[in-house]
Design a binder for these strands. Structure first.
Length: 588
RNA sequence: GGGGUCGUAGCUCAGUUUGGUUAGAGCGCCGGCCUGUCACGUCGGAGGUCGCGGGUUCGAGCCCCGUCGGCCCCGCCA
């Protein structure tokens, strides 16, 4: 009674098949029952095809068709027929034909799903994640995962063709200091010891260079036990690349070529040029190390003008070695008091104390702080940020980093509110010449901004001991539309330089040896200069597909609190399992 | 760790401002009718732990406290 093998996918039926007898298999999307005529939309991965059952022409199949419900899995034997001229559905790829079914077999019944398996269905993300297999069955969501596959395949072929070798590195490895919190895996064979899941294969890829593979890549899962966001998951996929004897230029050129290929694969035109900004320039112009350059609203500095005013807000910041920076928002001079108050709310999470607003409207100046600042300086401040008649000037007085963060947030806010981003536009840019270290007030020491294996600029090596804050790194980030999609560096390949960097980070010789001894050992046996880059694959796919959340391009993601609503992980384990691992749960 | 926001029928939501009789809508679901539908139509029907716990009150979906969960953000994420 079983129907034979499928001859075609439902979504692939075309006028070419007119008159042919086909075997189709798939899911019932919807049944439209007109009494003695029944239409069924049959769905599979490739699309949807209309099936027809009629009482007088195919009575046996017709009777069974009455029983069909959404998401039943069925097999049919039928003949491809043209639709009448009036009956063609221009919205369907298969809309000019239909399949008259002579034989119907129900392969699996289905309960009514908790939500309709259709693109149009409005469903909360909570439901989608709890029934992810149904969510993924929806055509548009299914297509995202297929697109992800294509992008991964294109990555592999692109890099393979250029001499890169995909090499697997361990998931069960060693916990290292610095960086993100590790996921730990207890060892049964050696109780009390733990593996760590890799935050990235960083050290192993460097060791692949020591091993002489010359060019390495991997599409690889990474794990970081940190809080989740719209663009961050506990486990995520990285395109990890490393090469021997590189220049910065060689790595950047390779990365640009790969990204161009991925744009093409996604059906997008790659941005024609990829400008480079130094870190300092990015902060100066955009207040951000991953600026969205698809719109202007660039920042200016007005500290010197502000210094001449008696305004206490400015004075306080400047006396604390801060600055006064600002930006002009075109056409917003009519902003209301309420809206101005809302701006303070935007700035607050970034540590900003408030926003000073000055307006040029009706040929005069306005703003609550105008009387404190004075007409002359206020005009000069607006001039400095290029605010014209009808424009709003926003100023923040604070430490440099805080002022930048606040203004960057305001910049993004107004770009969204004013619709300044041209639809379909994508901007790529490099940010490079990052500082090697940043000061951590909590730990009272310097921390590596990129990672501790990044090569400092050679002319700055002497500063490693005297003034670490001034050391620049041979590191570069690739930014797409205001998102960091990749970052890399030239690595340290000399033990002596590596030791100096560890020292600057406050590691003792013993700590360095204990944590990274295997790397330092390897460096003693002839290490080629090397460097590389890693892309956040999920984030890149998200942006290329125009999604708002990384979860949309990950088949089985976790919620923002790290739970899997489908499996219920993380879960408790049997006492026996804990016992085997020598682990006891601490009572709260 | 902190802030914001949401949680009411299978789903998406209204009702919460100002506590008051029997908690509503659309879609879906179940049944009847229907030969050209494709968001089929049409007639009828079923369906509720108002996230959970506690409190205030004569009375709580609505007010208060706590808690769990979704989403967004700060911190964190080399």
């Amino acid at each position: 009674m079983s129907l034979p093998e499928r001859s075609l996918c439902a979504g692939q039926v075309r006028p070419d098949h007119l008159g042919q007898e086909l075997i189709l298999k798939g899911w019932v999307r919807r049944r439209r029952d007109l009494g003695s005529l029944v239409f069924v939309d049959l769905r599979d991965r490739e699309g949807i095809c209309q099936l027809v059952f009629s009482e007088d022409r195919t009575p046996a199949a017709f009777a069974l068709a009455k029983e069909l419900r959404p998401e039943y899995v069925i097999a049919v034997r039928g003949t491809v027929r043209p639709r009448g001229e009036k009956d063609v559905n221009p919205h369907m790829e298969t809309g000019s034909v239909e399949v008259e079914v002579s034989e119907l077999e129900v392969l699996a019944e289905a309960e009514t799903p908790p939500f309709a398996v259709e693109d149009e269905a409005l469903v909360s993300e909570e439901m989608r994640l709890a029934y992810r297999y149904l969510d993924l069955r929806r055509p548009f969501q299914n297509a995202r995962i297929v697109a992800r596959h294509r992008l991964a395949q294109r990555t592999r072929s692109h890099l393979s063709e250029r001499g890169f070798i995909e090499i697997e590195t361990p998931f069960l490895t060693k916990s290292t200091p610095e960086g993100a919190r590790d996921f730990l895996v207890p060892s049964r064979l050696r109780q009390g010891s733990f593996y760590a899941l890799p935050q990235s294969p960083q050290l192993f890829k460097q060791l692949c260079m020591v091993a002489g593979f010359d060019r390495y890549f991997q599409v690889v899962r990474c794990f970081r036990d940190e809080d989740l966001r719209a663009d961050r998951q506990l486990e995520f996929t990285q395109i990890d690349i490393e090469m021997s004897f590189p220049t910065e230029e060689a790595i950047m050129a390779l990365a640009e070529g790969l990204v161009a290929a991925l744009f093409e694969e996604a059906g997008l035109a790659p941005p024609p040029s990829i400008p480079r900004l130094t870190y300092a320039e990015a902060m100066e112009r955009y207040g951000c190390d991953k600026p969205d350059t698809r719109f202007g609203l660039e920042l200016g500095t007005v500290s010197e003008i502000a210094r001449e005013t008696g305004f206490g807000v400015f004075k306080g910041a400047l006396e604390a070695c801060g600055c006064v920076r600002g930006l002009a928002v075109p056409g917003m001079a009519g902003i209301s008091r309420k809206q101005i108050d809302e701006l303070n709310g935007i700035v607050k999470p970034f540590g900003g104390k408030g926003v000073v607003s000055l307006m040029r409207r009706d040929g005069a100046l306005a703003g609550a702080a105008l009387k404190h600042i004075g007409e002359g300086p206020a005009a000069a401040m607006l001039e400095a940020v290029e605010a014209k008649e009808g424009d709003l000037g926003l100023f923040v007085a604070d430490g440099y980093d805080t002022a930048c963060a606040c203004l960057s947030a305001l910049r993004l806010h107004f770009a969204g509110a004013l619709g300044l981003v041209e639809k379909g536009r994508h901007d790529l840019l490099w940010v490079h010449r990052f500082p090697m270290f940043e000061w951590s007030p909590e730990e009272a020491r310097w921390m590596a901004r990129h990672h501790p294996f990044t090569m400092p600029r050679e002319e700055h090596w002497p500063l490693l001991e005297s003034d670490p804050g001034k050391v620049e790194a041979l590191a570069y980030d690739l930014v797409l539309d205001g998102n960091e999609i990749g970052g890399g560096s030239i690595r340290i390949h000399r033990g002596d330089v590596q030791r100096k960097v560890f020292k600057a980070l406050g590691f003792s010789e013993e700590q360095a040896q204990e944590k990274f001894g295997f790397l330092l050992d390897a460096f003693r046996f002839g290490t080629p200069p090397h460097g590389g880059i890693a892309f956040g694959f999920d984030r890149l796919v998200m942006l290329l597909l125009g999604c708002d959340s990384i979860r949309d391009v990950i088949p089985f993601p976790k919620t923002t609190s790290g739970l899997c609503l489908m499996t219920g992980s993380p879960g408790t384990v049997e006492a026996k399992q804990l016992d085997e691992l020598g682990i006891a749960i601490k009572e709260k």
